[in-house]
Write a protein that binds this DNA or RNA. Sequence first.
RNA 1: GGCGCCGUACCCAAGUGGUAAGGGAGCAGUCUGCAAAACUGCGAUGCGGCGGUUCGAACCCGCCCGGCGCCUCCA
Length: 493
Amino acid sequence: MLHLFNTLTGKREPFEPLNPPMVGMYVCGVTVYDYCHVGHARNALVFDVLRRYLEYSGYTVRFVKNFTDVDDKIIARAREQGVPCEAITSRFIEAYYEDMDRLGIRRATEEPKATEHIEDIIRLTEVLIDKGLAYVVDGDVYFNVATYPPYGRLSKRRLEDLQAGARVEVDERKRHPMDFALWKHSKPGEPSWLSPWGPGRPGWHIECSAMSIKHLGETFDIHGGGMDLIFPHHENEIAQSCGATGKEFARFWVHNGFVQVNQEKMSKSLGNFFTIREIFAKSEWPEPVTGEVLRYFLLSTQYRGPVDFSDQALKEAKNALNGFYDLFERLKEPNDTATQGDGDINGVIERARMSFVRAMDDDLNTPMAIAALQGLRGEINKLLASGLSNQGRTQARQAFRTMGKVLGLFQLEAWQFGASFSGLPGHHAAHEREGGASGPTRLSDDEIERLVKERGEARQRKDFKKADEIRRKLSSLGIIIEDKPDGTSRWKR
RNA sequence: GGCGCCGUACCCAAGUGGUAAGGGAGCAGUCUGCAAAACUGCGAUGCGGCGGUUCGAACCCGCCCGGCGCCUCCA
């Protein structure tokens, strides 16, 4: 059974959905005013994997992930560029999909936008006012934290502590410094909707309450997001939602850790971030390979811990993945002579599956799950050496495909090796090698085939000088040749 | 000031009371015309430091050192 670390209780708890086999999961999506960086990728990936694993475990997941498409930063960006907000949001939503598609992040079942739920937001705000939990000042509506005693239970903070450390200038009109806006009156030129309190727009936190309740009901199973959302965003969501409904809101709160660069949080203000598209643009690996390398890299750390992003880390992920695809390549080659019992392939696969499930059940321990797959790789390699039938080969490949699917790995048909990776884009000057006159020249498959064939003929003539010359030439272009026992060769990039 | 996280081999990373998984890199061997891949072997008497609890601690407690995060928009 799946156990998840629940931020609300601070403990690892057995996960049981409210209405099995349905699981309702809401994850805070991005504010669409800029390109996504690796931190966003990790967040999206963690919940993509959680969703996949829940499905693997037999649940039906209703997965809601929002777009925040009305917000101060969007307004500022639109103003900078002299375009309407919609121009900004539609552009970055499109970019978001491009990036996430390349990472193999599946679409959520619902992807609501804040601007499409203004009615729901207004209704929820009215309820809070009616219940005396919110108040109106000059066209703004604030949530009154003092009227909600459990405030702070998610982030384990006390209101007094918050006051003590508040670095923000206190708005005189607020009754309590920690009161937060549910509705903001709009200034001229800002996006605005009619409301009982005059023209305005929603505050940030209320949209997630409104949308999650609308799509998943007042109480649902899992609410996720980055660690940095615990306070104040999720704390406020709980206050609003529980305040309005009088019921439990999300039952499990799941938060992913940060992507770091040199031990520091990757963030805009530090300028140490890499956008997803930069990485793809700079990578010399084929796009699907780069996507899988990023996934493998991000999943090689448990989701709650920090993960340090670096050029070297990506290379290590690539190398580790090479071993799997190298095996898959050999599994593809038919073996018409092997007729014996395939050893204990069923047992080997079954044991790997059990380790895999045990790891994933343990708060999504993906590094351990990957270790299980590595173990299986070793076992299958051994079986392969002793002669694995075509059926056994198919069975093995299928096992990798099935478990890999949960992590979004091992789904590719072709994996091209070897192209050198020139380093991360921008940022570290040291990584920017000029790399001589030209990088690895791209040879077409036909050209490579021709050279490999030529070398094969040379080998047959025992003209090893010639054969090695060709191999060196290909090698210098990033192409590696592996000779098979039958005299033919396979090659890889 | 408040709340919290992290520190395991060259690198990445599991392990949260029973005697250090896994991967990458490296080295050696087998195989190979030579390679590559694969396989086999090697690699932390020790888990930031010092104390304590315990039959037993990387895991629990205390103190200290180093790094980071949140408390303001942030995945």
